[in-house]
Amino acid sequence: MAEQKNRHIAFICSKGDLDMAYPALIMGWAALGNGVDVTIFFTFWGLDLVTKKRVDKLEISPIGRTSFKMSLMGLPTGNLGIPGILSILPGMTAFSSWFLKWKMKKLGVPPVREYIEMLHDAGAKMYGCKMTVDMFGLKKEDFLPQLDDVVTASDFIDMTDGAQIIFI
């Protein structure tokens, strides 16, 4: 039988907000579970997901987040959002972040650091964006050991030949 090229999905993670960290992790994990090759490229704020000092401190701010409704907290407030005037109060970002983490923990969703470990152990390849790393002044030792390498955009394009690419 002729050698068939395995399906390959590449995710580009460009956001470091708590809610934007999860799409690639969840879909990447599902892909690996279904026998699909996975490559993840962390660029710009997305690097927070694999930066030792940042990975456990990802946050979500209620400011400007119109989908973040009070009903998410189990309040019978229907479509009412978190009032902007409350969102700017000190502690609201910490509260929102804590709340989202608590919600996900209840569902059995692991924290980002553990997810990165799971993906690595399941065979995902993970790379940091060289330009961002240079811009932020980061070094190899600043990253989780699961990050395979820091590569250029051109390297990423080369290694994802034929892959389906998802930008987050």
């Binding site: 395995n6 599902a30 690996l32 579970g33 279904n34 026998g35 699909v36 470990e117 799971m118 152990d121 399941a122 065979g123």
Partner: peptide
């Protein structure tokens, strides 16, 4: 472990 699970059932353990 995740590593062992993927080694025991390579290429798509979830469905396998």
């Amino acid at each position: 472990s995740t590593k062992d699970l993927f080694a025991l059932y390579p290429k798509g353990p979830a469905k396998k």
